[in-house]
């Protein structure tokens, strides 16, 4: 366990020391500021209410979960794998007394923690912006649901990270991984619309699964089904990604 902790700490330090985290924070804040400005503009220009204080974070989540969060996930995952493959810096870790399984798991864990950090940051700042600028419509129940929605969004984003990690282990170039990821993302979005009866199987649809928790009837079976689909695909993607990583020659 100490070896895994060391590997994880190293991955987190590498993430932190690169400027990508700073860019992620600034972009997250920009989304909130721009979103808030749009709402204030709509309110004063058209006399519409826009959103209430707790609705604003949900609006932010609905936008970021399909845009900047998958983008951050892709950038960090590609950098963590393809970046180190191309610069040969993967050798630095591989020639230490740590198994490839621990290295792979530490890398994935660091990416998941990064996504969690981004979600928390967005939650805190959008809540603050919502309370400061919008009419107060908060109830404890709606606040709880908002927080919960942010946390459950971690699961589909983790599956996305595992999918990108798999691609990063298949393709040599980071740019190729990025383009394939973007194309696959868009293709799944389109397929989700064209074949809406199968859309629950697609990762892009699962990104919006937090909506299931907002329905008053609470569709427990649907939630369970979605959870199991994500869990299953997550396990398969992890296994496939690790298999290729383990066989790689450096």
């Amino acid at each position: 366990m100490a070896v895994f902790q060391a590997a994880l700490l190293n991955e987190l330090e590498k993430l932190y020391k690169k400027k990508k985290v700073l860019v992620a924070i600034l972009l997250s804040l920009a989304v909130i500021v721009i979103g808030q400005l749009v709402i204030v503009g709509v309110r004063s220009g058209f006399g519409l209410r826009g959103t209430g204080s707790v609705e604003f974070p949900m609006l932010v989540l609905s936008v970021v979960v399909n845009t900047i969060l998958p983008l951050f996930t892709a950038l960090v995952a590609i950098d963590s794998f393809s970046g180190e493959f191309n610069q040969n810096s993967m050798r630095i870790t591989l020639t230490r007394p740590v198994s490839r399984f621990k290295i792979y798991t530490a890398k994935i864990t660091a990416i998941v923690l990064f996504i969690l950090g981004a979600l928390l940051l967005l939650l805190v700042f959008s809540l603050l912006a919502g309370f400061i600028f919008n009419t107060n419509s908060a109830t404890l129940d709606s606040l709880g649901r908002t927080v919960f929605s942010y946390f459950v969004s971690l699961l589909p984003l983790t599956v996305l990270a595992l999918a990108i990690a798999l691609l990063a282990n298949i393709f040599k170039s980071g740019i190729a991984v990025f383009f394939v990821s973007v194309l696959a993302f868009l293709a799944l979005k389109v397929l989700g619309v064209l074949f809406s009866q199968y859309s629950s199987l697609f990762l892009t649809t699962q990104l919006d699964w937090y909506n299931l928790f907002l329905v008053n009837s609470f569709p427990i079976l649907k939630i369970l089904r979605q959870f199991l689909i994500m869990l299953g695909s997550g396990i398969m993607l992890f296994t496939a990604g690790f298999y290729i990583f383990d066989k790689k020659e450096f």
Binding site: N10, E13, K18, S89, R91, I92, P97, V98
Partner: peptide, 29 residues
């Protein structure tokens, strides 16, 4: 590998870290 140190081909390092930070990464193991 617990008691092995090695340098294979070109010495690699994380270019965005200082010399000290590079070694601290390894020291954790």
């Amino acid at each position: 590998l617990a008691k092995v140190g090695c340098l294979i081909e070109i010495a690699e390092s994380y270019h965005y870290l200082s010399a000290f930070d590079n070694l601290r990464q390894l020291a954790r193991y």
